[in-house]
Design a protein around this nucleic acid. Structure first.
Length: 224
DNA sequence: TCATTAAATTGTT
DNA sequence: AACAATTTAATGA
């Protein structure tokens, strides 16, 4: 399992941070492990920390009153998230759940705001991240209305590998087809067929509980 | 190390 | 939604 220091080294916003600043940030962050299926934070919890996925995989999702699950984003190792709620100073609007055993970094809101007030590199990073996320969500609406299920699964999968949001270069995702369904807005059965199509197209490799991306560009551009 | 079993995940209808 | 097949993880001999 990866460590906080490895995560910080991987995060681009730490690279231009002066050593004193980085060491304070490092000292302020706390780390907690979550088992697969465990809730990391719930809708309504105060957004008291900026969150980083040191290891594992996390989803941001919402449950309909009828119990249907919709996943808005899957967050792989190496990524930081929840800056929206911390910036707003409000409670979380969605639930976040560990999809596998995961290690999460908690940067206190006070440290986050201190970086915001003092570090240009940190602000640059946040702007870029917010912009990338905006693009991803606009894309989701577009794909939802214009693309067939095979292509939607392809884009949902590709979204987990956005190189700006998720700098980790590991081409594997350990995720079940059921969870991919929640992410792509398709049934598990439909996801299963889509994965077979994408595998035959040479874009991915499918294993038990694991998808390996072979051609990220091809995935992003896939259309039936 | 191997066999057995339960649980999770997948493939198909 | 249901069912069978497959894979993994855990257990104990």
């Amino acid at each position: 399992m990866r460590t906080l220091d490895e995560m910080l080294t991987l995060s681009s916003w730490t690279r231009e941070l002066p050593a004193e600043q980085l060491s304070r940030v490092r000292a302020d962050i706390s780390v907690r492990d979550f088992a697969a299926g465990a809730s990391i934070c719930r809708k309504g919890d105060p957004a008291s920390a900026w969150l980083g996925v040191i290891d594992g995989l996390v989803k941001i999702h919402s449950l309909s009153p009828a119990g249907k699950s919709v996943t808005f984003a899957g967050i792989p190792a190496g990524a930081w998230f929840a800056e929206g709620s911390v910036l707003r100073g409000m409670a979380f609007k969605y639930d976040t759940v560990a999809l596998r055993d995961s290690r999460i970094a908690f940067m206190p809101e006070s440290t986050f705001r201190w970086l915001l007030d003092t570090s240009i590199p940190f602000n640059r990073f946040l702007l870029k991240q917010l912009n990338e996320r905006l693009g991803q969500f606009i894309g989701m609406v577009e794909h939802d209305r214009l693309l067939d299920p095979d292509a939607r699964v392809a884009r949902a999968l590709a979204g987990l590998f956005n190189p700006h949001l998720y700098p980790d270069s590991d081409p594997h995702v350990q995720i079940s087809q059921e969870e991919l369904g929640y992410l792509a807005g398709a049934s598990r059965q439909r996801v299963n067929r889509a994965l077979q199509v994408l595998e035959k197209a040479g874009l991915i490799k499918v294993d038990y509980g694991l998808v390996t991306v072979l051609d990220l560009n091809g995935l992003q551009q896939f259309e039936a």
